[in-house]
Design a protein around this nucleic acid. Structure first.
Lengths: 212, 212
DNA sequence: ATGGTTGGTGGACAGGTGTCCACCGTTTCA
DNA sequence: TGAAACGGTGGACACCTGTCCACCAACCAT
């Protein structure tokens, strides 16, 4: 290239840079097809390297997918942990978490397209990794629930089951958001999801007090 | 073939038969890959016809996918409608519906693998078709809810939102069932899902009575 | 200064892919 | 009875795929 573009870069820096480029390209291309249907050559072409060079960074497409999963959940977990620790523990921090999630879906749409697709997609390794991460979220939410007043007498089983339902609702909300371009539709989805979360917490509150 | 195999078949019958074979083969093969990553030649080989002959039945892979969706939801809707009309309307028929669903997942596993994969999968046409069918279920469940005693004063919006959550929970349950081979795990999933459905209906019952 | 390490290149390979064409034998129906 | 319609065949086409090899030039540590 004729552009100067800071030629002073150490080798490892340059490697990291094309690694980034590969991840980004893969994300971009995975919008129109699952990871397993993703072509190494396509990715390489998008990045601007020879198809071979891909193997200098990832041993397989699966490994690429796992790296994407790590990256995605790494930052997302950080964000949600922040909003959760800022909030007073007494009340559930679930609704504000939804706000963070929606923002994130907006700014990093492709990551979530990838996520929702690969969650049930072709590669078993990637699928399992995503499932594991979601289970971690589930556990965290269950912990939040346990901290709520009046919920102490629940069995851990019940905590887990209701937390699972919340995660499920959130994932479904993300899916709907992704395929809704119009602004009002997005607002409606967010409102509906908030309502669902409230329904869930109410149901949870009255759960144990029920005879049986 | 040397087997006699009832050679007395009208042309349209034979066409229908290989059409069936194509649908079955596609379902079989779609276990290990999304529809968009499905090879026409693979399907043809499995069926035992020349790759070309595929086009005598479907104009494209998308059309195949749409046919599968139609078939899947056709019978499923029938089954659920049966269990629902047999039950007294007074109580929600949601939990027995879950039983039917689980049975169906057992006997027609491949259909549900296809369903959960293509629901967020590559082809926009198939994805939309599935989404539409699920919305129909949603509407039916909302209707069931409206018939329940003490729920009459809900807004149709609320009905819809909570019905949506139920469908979401059911879809998630199916997904978990598909990737759980061990028998106890299956039982646990069913139990957890039933608990979730009960939580939901409880939450729904106390929903309107709440101030705000 | 030198030599190994490393990110990247180019070409080749064996195979797989969707789709088009001309053709065939049987069924259908007029 | 004859001709048209139809489901299916076989081969060819242009193209794309992952992966392997030898090779290169620059970087890094010695």
């Amino acid at each position: 290239m004729s552009t100067p573009e800071e030629p002073e870069l150490t080798r490892t820096e340059r490697k990291e840079r094309t690694r980034r480029a590969i991840l980004d390209a893969a994300l971009e291309l995975s919008e129109q097809g699952s990871l397993s249907a993703l072509s190494l050559r396509h990715v390489a072409r998008e990045v601007g390297i020879a198809p071979n060079a891909f193997y200098r960074h990832f041993a397989s497409a699966d490994e690429l997918g796992l790296a994407l999963v790590d990256e995605l959940f790494g930052t997302l977990r950080q964000l949600l942990s922040d909003v959760r620790s800022a909030r007073p523990i007494s009340d559930g921090a679930i609704v504000p978490s939804l706000g963070v999630l929606v923002d994130r879906v907006h700014t990093e749409r492709l990551q979530f397209v990838f996520l929702t697709r690969e969650r049930v997609g072709g590669s078993a390794a990637v699928r399992t990794a995503i499932r594991r991460e979601l289970e971690l979220f589930e556990a965290e939410i269950a912990l939040d629930f346990a901290r709520m007043p009046g919920a102490v007498q629940w069995s851990s089983e019940d905590l887990r089951v209701s937390a699972n339902l919340i995660v499920t609702a959130l994932v479904a909300a993300v899916e709907r958001l992704l395929y809704t371009q119009d602004r009002d539709g997005e607002q409606a989805i967010v409102a509906a999801t908030e309502k669902q979360l409230r329904m869930l917490t109410i149901g949870a509150r009255t759960w144990r007090s029920r005879p049986r």
